[in-house]
Design a protein around this nucleic acid. Structure first.
Length: 723
DNA sequence: AGCACGCCGACT
DNA sequence: GTCGGCGTGCTC
């Protein structure tokens, strides 16, 4: 505890900061980014606020090597790191690591090599040389790369002028990674309902204090336009703004939309961003040259210098949950960051999560409801098709009612979308002779036939094997039958029924990657496709302006699982898919094929009465003590083989919990997944609101007989009862 | 994160 | 008899 020591948090899996000696002549303040010796090497770290402890002898302390000339990590971000670490039960250093993801960003950015006119005219002037001098006479340096083609002369001319001393080496500062967005570039015309909501958001940003707003409204009600007004207000007030999107929705379309409103594309941040780009965005965010960022969940950990607003679009989306490494829910952490940084947070969704709805109902969030579609866009007419009364023909999966609607749509020259959230050809293959079912050797799930690829694939762990021609058990030839539909099989049926229609399958395991995908989306947009058959992919992120008909092949899929959020997820997915119809205006229809037309989820979608669904679901959650009324944590128990993972999970469950904590091994006691050769089971821990779940789990793990080495336990889900 | 230390299979 | 696999532990 001496004046010449300092606490440094290192981006490693260490619980707290280490103590270092401050060398003479160096002044350090909390948040400063430094380089310190650690073992045989040097490492990045940040000065933290903890008072240096005396547990390590002063004579063993090593000195800080260097302080970077970079903006310090701001106080509220430091508190955020501490908070997230405690909440997720992760060592603090691991959270800091998420902040310091772009270490090269700490060095000054490399200038661009350029050439400029030195003032010395060459002895001989040729026409090409005159061209160059004419363009460079003002002495402004021009970038070296591409200079000759930019000036329309051969590289030899440039080289000659350099040799003569007419052009000399120079540098130019790299352009900012993103141009400044202008809040008043193209102010939109808002509808009446939108004006009120936009005004409320503007007032929140003006107030400059923590508050959470939940904007909800059907697809096409203009949520984006409304929250852009909040972004504009933050920019006007000199604050930075962050828009979070689920990775899949972070498309060029969205960036263009931002650019149309603000006159410049925002900086973007996501996992695919190349190293150079990451560094530039990180630096720009830290030094304040970047004013607006659109990013995936990890953007929440960027070192903003004056963050004044976070928008979480599609706030219900499960992609906000990070479940590798540090497990956190970006929507919840965004709310925390707003709370610690004293600025507003806006959650937006056409189908809000139950948690957010409850928080709004209970007054913790302000609810801004957008009542109607905007710009004359009409909602589709939605109808459930009862498959018990209108069944498909034998061996087929499309009901005559849906087929007729498709025929009509096709005849009118409009587009149809068939949605089935199941990749591949068939979800189960069995032998007609002996009844053998093809199961994954690692997991307990069925292998899915992918006919285009000729493989049987496990969608759980990725295992795949070639589809055999005969049964591996009874050796019968031609006895294998595909059970149930996947998108490939629906495509087959569509091809048989509509041989002249131009049909296309969109699913995540498409061959050809991003390029191919882009081309196909463009084909759909331009109207070169009549029938789109797609999985979840078509529900999110992409707009299909010409869609007149949406058919949900199996609306019941997803309702039967043991997952406590199954109903909510299905509702959200169905609302999104049916909402794809008719965005651009005109009449449109959506059909839900179902065996349970009275199921609350189906009924809510078909009647358009989502309120009824929410009330019912909220009540069900309240009764069972699930989030947001209780707190739920998933412990992932993992081990190198299935049996020991299972036995460790059971051992943990046997640890007698207090009465107010419930635990189940589940859902359905099935292994979650086999990832990187590790078998994982999930334990769900449920506790009442207000209960110190983290403390309980930590104590529980400390007291449990140490499971042999190879078992890892991590917090998976955690709820909202923190503010 | 690195890097060292420490126990069980196929080889000069 | 060793070389080497990566599981575990440590770095102020």
């Amino acid at each position: 505890m001496q004046a010449d020591t300092v606490s440094i948090l290192l981006p490693l899996a260490v619980e707290g900061p280490y103590t270092y000696r401050v060398p003479h002549g160096l002044t350090l303040a909390p948040g400063d980014i430094v380089r310190v010796p650690l073992g045989p090497r040097e490492m990045l770290g940040a000065v933290w606020d903890d008072p240096p402890d005396g547990s390590v002898g002063h004579n063993r302390l090593r000195p800080v090597a260097h302080r970077y000339d970079a903006p310090p990590i701001e106080e509220s971000l430091r508190r955020f790191v501490d908070w997230v670490a405690r909440y997720t039960m992760t060592p603090r250093g691991m959270i800091l690591r998420m902040v310091l993801r772009a270490p090269e960003a700490l060095l000054p950015e490399r200038a661009i090599a350029a050439l400029r006119f030195s003032g010395t005219v060459p002895a001989r002037l040729t026409p090409a040389r005159e061209t160059v001098l004419g363009r460079m006479a003002d002495g402004q340096p021009l970038p070296k790369t591409g200079l000759s083609s930019a000036l329309g002369v051969s590289p030899a001319v440039i080289a000659g002028l350099v040799a003569q001393g007419t052009l000399v080496e120079a540098t130019i500062a790299p352009p900012p990674v993103a141009a400044l967005p202008d809040p008043d570039h193209a102010r939109p015309e808002l509808g009446t309902g939108q004006i009120e909501a936009a005004e409320a958001l503007r007032a929140m940003v003006d107030a400059g204090s923590y508050e959470v707003a939940l904007i909800d409204g059907v697809t096409g009600s203009g949520k984006t336009e409304v929250y852009f007004e909040a972004v504009a207000e933050a920019l006007r007030r000199g604050r930075q703004a962050l828009i979070l999107l689920p990775e899949i929705a972070l498309t060029g379309d969205f960036l263009d939309r931002f650019a149309r409103r603000f006159g410049a594309r925002p900086a973007e941040w996501h996992s695919e961003l190349p190293q150079r780009g990451r560094e530039r965005v990180w630096r720009g965010v830290a030094d304040g040259t970047v004013r607006a960022v659109v990013g995936a969940r990890s953007a929440l950990f960027l070192p903003f210098r004056e963050l004044g607003l976070v928008i979480v679009d599609e706030e219900h989306d499960a992609a906000y949950k990070q479940d590798e490494g540090v497990t956190y829910h970006a929507r919840d952490m965004a709310v925390v960051r707003g709370n610690l940084g004293a600025f507003p947070v806006v959650l937006a969704s056409a189908t809000p999560s139950i948690e957010s709805r409850v928080n709004a109902d209970q007054g913790r969030y302000r609810r801004l409801h957008l009542p109607a579609r905007f710009r004359a866009a009409k909602l589709p007419e939605i109808r459930a098709i009862d498959l018990r009364t209108d069944p498909p023909e034998r061996g087929r999966f499309l009901s005559p009612v849906l087929v007729k609607a498709m025929e009509e749509t096709l005849a009118a020259g409009s587009q149809s979308l068939l949605f089935l959230n199941r990749r591949g050809y068939a979800p189960l293959t069995l032998c007609r002779t002996c009844g053998h079912r093809f199961q994954c050797p690692n997991c307990s799930s069925w292998l899915v036939e992918h006919r285009f690829r000729g493989q049987l694939v496990c969608h759980h762990c990725g295992h795949s094997e070639p589809r055999p021609s005969h049964c591996p058990i009874c050796a019968s030839e031609d006895s294998l039958v595909a059970c149930g539909p996947g998108v490939e099989r629906i495509a087959e049926e569509v091809a048989a029924r509509f041989p002249d229609a131009r049909a296309i399958v969109l699913s995540s395991d498409m061959q050809g990657g991003v390029q191919q995908m882009r081309a196909e989306l463009e084909a759909i947009r331009s109207g070169a496709v009549d029938i789109v058959i797609g999985t979840q992919l078509v529900a999110k992120g992409h707009n299909f302006p010409g869609l007149a008909l949406v058919g949900v092949v199996d609306a019941d899929l997803g309702l039967a699982q043991g997952d406590p959020r199954a109903a909510e997820r299905t509702f959200q997915l169905l609302a999104q898919v049916t909402g794809r119809a008719g965005r651009a205006g005109g009449d449109s229809r959506a059909f839900l094929q179902t065996y349970a037309p009275d199921h609350p989820v189906i009924a809510a979608i078909a009647s358009g009465d989502s309120e009824a669904f929410y009330q019912r679901e909220i009540e069900a959650r309240r009764v069972s003590g699930l989030p947001p009324f209780g707190r739920l944590a998933g412990l992932i128990v993992s081990a190198a083989d299935r049996a020991s993972a299972m036995s460790h999970a059971q051992a943990l469950r046997r640890m007698a919990p207090p009465e107010d904590v419930a635990m189940v091994l589940g859902p359905s006691e099935a292994p979650l997944a086999v990832l990187r050769g590790r078998h994982r089971f999930r334990l769900l821990v449920r506790a009442p609101r207000g209960f110190d779940l983290q403390g309980f789990i930590a104590g529980w793990l400390a007291a449990s007989p140490p499971p042999r080495g190879s078992v890892k336990v991590q917090i998976d889900i955690d709820p909202l009862s923190f503010l």
